[in-house]
């Protein structure tokens, strides 16, 4: 991930050889790196799909069709559909404010945005139990009005929003900072309103970073285990998301079904990476152009 404070320098020395090692060393290093990746990344990933499809595609689809599994998939989609747009709005506004304006407390805001990265997901879940649990600060008040947060969908959404908080903002801030405010100033001087400037200048300038941030945010929102596990209550067919369902299926000796659901999550990760690569390849020039603004 790009560092917020220091945008990547573009003035790398051009005429020095990048490395001085002999070819044999270079080949060896490459082989070691590839073998390592193959052993710890590719092989496990392949084995997930292999296990999931080992009894044929029909069995795979059947394994996903169980009532509780179907409801877990549904809940996961619902949670992502709420938390990703919420973080999209937050990420855009926060990075816009940070990159385009100077204000007191700006560095505090940047630090706070990073907080979910450094807090353990279990702690993130427990924070919400402490806030909204029956013994928590707001629990009795909520119970009086019959509002359920913890051990229900709202709690799961809150925990997911918390852990996926930084993804979009972290993608946007460095790019927006690198671009500066000249484009916006030009638009304003030409008579554009604030909204017009935002939608016609600021947003198009960061669209690729935004899209990538949304993809990452979505992948994490669907894949989060720890924080969601704490606030879920594990009610079958009701408050289990896909990652929780994988654990349940595995513990109940339903290995094929567990791997089927796990393979869906792995597929999500793969699609995210592939779309990212395609974007970078297809729009390489345009991305470079927006960075260099």
């Amino acid at each position: 991930m790009t560092d917020i404070a220091a945008p990547a320098p573009h003035h790398a020395a051009r005429f020095q050889p990048a490395a001085t090692e002999r070819p044999a060393v270079r080949v060896l290093l490459t082989v070691v790196a590839l073998a390592f990746l193959g052993l710890f990344l590719v092989l496990p990933l392949v084995s997930v799909f292999y296990e999931a499809l080992s009894a044929g595609f029909g069995a795979f689809v059947k394994a996903l069709g169980g009532r509780e599994t179907a409801s877990a998939i549904e809940l996961t989609l619902l949670v992502a559909a709420i938390s990703v747009p919420a973080n999209l709005v937050f990420g855009l506004t926060a990075s816009w404010a940070i990159a385009k304006f100077e204000f007191r407390g700006k560095s505090l805001l940047i630090t706070l945005i990073d907080l979910p990265f450094s807090v353990s997901p279990v702690t993130a879940g427990l924070i919400y139990v402490l806030m909204f649990g029956a013994q928590g600060y707001l629990g009795p008040l909520l119970a009086e009005h019959g509002i359920k947060v913890i051990f229900a969908v709202p709690g799961i959404v809150l925990a997911t929003i918390f852990v996926t908080f930084p993804f979009i903002a972290r993608e946007l801030i460095p790019i927006m900072q690198a671009q500066g405010t000249q484009d916006e100033e030009a638009a304003l001087s030409l008579g554009a309103s604030g909204w017009q400037t935002f939608f016609r200048v600021t947003l198009p300038n960061v669209k690729w970073a935004l899209l990538y941030g949304v993809l990452l945010c979505n992948a994490r929102a669907m894949g989060e285990f720890g924080a969601v596990s704490v606030v879920s209550g594990h009610i079958r067919g009701k408050t289990n998301t896909m990652p929780l369902q994988v654990e349940i299926l595995y513990n109940e000796y339903m290995y094929r079904a567990a791997f089927a659901v796990a393979s869906l999550l792995a597929l999500l990760a793969l699609v995210t990476l592939i779309v990212k690569s395609i974007l970078e390849w297809r729009y390489a020039d345009e991305i470079a152009a927006t960075r260099r603004h």
């Binding site: 747009p85 709005v89 939608f199 198009p204 669209k207």
Partner: peptide
């Protein structure tokens, strides 16, 4: 694309 993102934003 900008419009699409804006549209998605409002829909969200």
């Amino acid at each position: 694309i900008g419009r699409l993102v804006a549209g998605a934003l409002f829909a969200a």
